[in-house]
Amino acid sequence: MDRRTVLHAATTSGLAAALPALHRPDASRRVTPAHVERLRARTARLRRLDMVLGGGDTYRVYLAEVQHTKHLLRSRSFTGESRRLLTGLLAEQAQQAGWAAFDGGRPGDATDLYEESRGYAREAGDDDLYGNSLAFLAYGAGDRRAAVTTAQDSCATITARTPATVRALLYERLAWASAVDGRAIGAERALDAARDALNGAPEGEPQPDWAAWVDHTELDIMTGRCWTELRRPLRAVPVLTRALGRYPDDNARDKALYLSWLARAYLTAGEVEEAAVTVGRAVDLAHGVASERPLQRIVPLIDDLRHHGDVPAVRGLMAHLAA
């Protein structure tokens, strides 16, 4: 799906109309586990939008899913385990909507949705989603120490039954919180635990769709981001360079973000030319994406590079931006 084609369709007829074959499955007055699974499959399809669109475009779509599921829980009767399953799905949907809110510059809405998700996950008895709600809260927390504590609480939900990608995701978020708080040893230990989780995944182990994007490439990128935050560019640059070489440009928002950490690592190392070139790539990828986060990362980098106006690569970048 081409990102700019979808954006053009969305501006003319609305995003929902621009998405093919995503009508909600019909439900009778009684919701069955089979109906919940069809809704879960729809949620998984909609999640793919996050790969090509920013939260500014997807927030209302994901929030509408949350509201629809709440309506079902209020207005329908249920068979078997369908109510518990639907409540777990609501926790998953609230996390996705919260992520879009965070990405689209609505941090307050994001926190509210993560807190809602935590309550739904507890009600559904879903430890994995409960742990992930805490990881989301830690990721967006403004208080660095509180973020580490919340991330540690999320990792405390891990059991022998926790899927490998979920374990890795929770440890990644703990590593990030630790790095932002300047805790190098804690960050490295958490990254090692995440890598052990992925390396030790039993063959054929089912992984939840909401954590399926966690792989060794993503872990390498998080590793580089952590070392950048800890001002260790000699560790950050090689791992980020290798990982981003494998990372597709189609995931424009995320790659722009990840390139911003590579650029910051170059600047920390005094490699101004490489930083300027990398920022230019990030700017091009971020163009047209309805996400606040790339700009939040790129603008400070540009400001720092302005102090190196005598460097040809920086002059080229500024000319490119002006154009």
Rank of each mutant, 00 (worst) to 15 (best):
Q152T: 08
G108Q: 11
L134D: 04
S154V: 05
H216F: 06
G88W: 02
P208F: 15
R144H: 13
L129I: 12
L89G: 14
D128Q: 11
A124H: 14
Q96H: 11
V166F: 09
L174T: 02
H216W: 04
I158K: 03
R183D: 12
A160E: 11
A179D: 02
W213P: 00
P202H: 05
E218D: 11
R144S: 14
R189I: 15
E92G: 03
A197D: 01
A175I: 01
V148M: 06
L137H: 00
T111R: 15
S133V: 02
G186Q: 07
L90E: 04
R118P: 00
A179R: 03
R183T: 01
E115V: 09
P206C: 05
D153L: 15
A101I: 12
A101M: 09
R122W: 09
V180N: 00
A177Y: 00
T87C: 14
Q152V: 09
R183Q: 14
A100K: 12
W213E: 12
L86D: 01
D196T: 10
P202M: 06
A201H: 07
T157W: 15
G200K: 02
V148K: 11
Y139H: 10
A201D: 03
E123M: 12
I185L: 11
D112M: 15
A197H: 03
L129W: 13
D215F: 04
P208E: 08
A110I: 07
H216I: 10
A146G: 10
T162C: 04
D126C: 07
A197F: 03
S154R: 01
A177M: 02
Y139L: 12
R122F: 12
A135C: 01
Q96P: 11
A147W: 00
G186T: 03
Y114K: 07
P202S: 08
P107C: 13
W210R: 00
A177D: 04
A110S: 10
G140F: 06
Y130H: 15
D126R: 04
L86S: 00
L85H: 02
S178K: 06
I158W: 13
R122D: 13
R195V: 02
D153R: 10
